[in-house]
Design a protein around this nucleic acid. Structure first.
Length: 272
DNA sequence: CAAGATTCCTGGTGGC
DNA sequence: TGCCACCAGGAATCTT
């Protein structure tokens, strides 16, 4: 489900409810995520949450005196603040009771998510984070880094910008959207896109992610923020899931094909 | 190596 | 209405 804007929306929604609060209780209702929920997860009870950060599509909770929590929402995960009296939903897998009396619930029907406790060390050194590429909204993401990532590559540019070693956070929706904004056909081999066009693409990636965050992310089917509300960026999508519908710029029907095993959308007139 | 395919899992949708 | 095939915001791990 969630790409960078949805994860950032979640971070911003959750942060004010958890920072400064102590974890009073840990309830694990289903351990079987993409990796099993950490065996040491119960040890975080009694410790306060001091910060909530994001790296790529991961959320990192800093726990005073108990290391960090590393959470990934996978394809269908969400974090929600709820009252302790609220009944558990079917796929509420991990619940943290907070000193405010509220709860932070991790809900994930498909269980592709990750919920790990890192008792010690710098989370940036964890194998899941260690080899990640640049953050698209940080200054380290430049035309040069994108050029370096694409150099010599025969894979479609659309597949390349979804590769977390080249740039993180760009998932299937925003890959198509960024290419539309940069007027680049998604099937173009990554190594054949000129530096000038990669500069446009870097701009497109930054713009589409920033605008989506401002709108609270994209709700296609089931994404809800930490308050249970949808994101409003869907109405601003130019191509994603708009096969055969008229291009919002030129009216030409939007085309669709599978690239890198994922549905890809583009306008055959606006994009070259 | 790079590139492509498969895998984990549940739920919603559309065709018959 | 039921059944079934197919598809879905990710990404590690296979095979080719």
């Amino acid at each position: 489900m969630p790409e960078l804007p949805e994860v950032e929306t979640t971070r911003r929604g959750v942060e004010p409810h958890v920072v400064g609060k102590k974890i009073t209780e840990v309830i694990v209702r289903h351990r079987g995520l993409r990796q099993p929920v950490s065996e040491t997860i119960d040890d975080i009870a009694g410790h306060a949450i001091t910060a909530v950060a994001r790296r790529a599509k991961y959320l990192i909770f800093t726990l005073k005196g108990a290391g960090h929590l590393l959470i990934h929402l996978g394809m269908s995960g969400s974090l929600r603040i709820s009252g302790e009296a609220e009944e558990f939903k079917k796929h509420d897998h991990v619940i943290l009771g907070l000193s405010s009396g509220k709860q932070l619930r991790f809900h994930d029907p498909r269980r592709f998510g990750i919920y790990l406790h890192l008792p010690e060390g710098d989370p940036a050194d964890h194998p899941l984070l260690r080899d990640l590429g640049p953050e698209p909204l940080d200054p380290e993401f430049t035309t040069e880094t994108l050029l370096k990532g694409c150099a010599g590559k025969k894979i479609a540019i659309k597949v390349a910008i979804m590769d977390a070693k080249i740039v993180v956070g760009v998932g299937n929706i925003y890959a198509s959207e960024a290419l539309f904004r940069a007027k680049i056909l998604p099937a173009t081999p990554a190594g054949e896109v000129s530096k000038a066009r990669l500069a446009k693409l870097a701009d497109g990636i930054r713009e589409v992610l920033t605008e989506s965050i401002e709108q609270g992310g994209t709700t296609l089917r089931d994404f809800l923020n930490s308050n249970g509300e949808p994101g409003y960026f869907k109405q601003r999508l130019f191509v994603y899931e708009r096969k055969d519908q008229p291009c919002r710029v030129c009216g030409t029907p939007i085309e669709q094909a599978v690239m890198g095993q994922r549905s890809t959308y583009w306008c055959p007139k606006c994009q070259k």
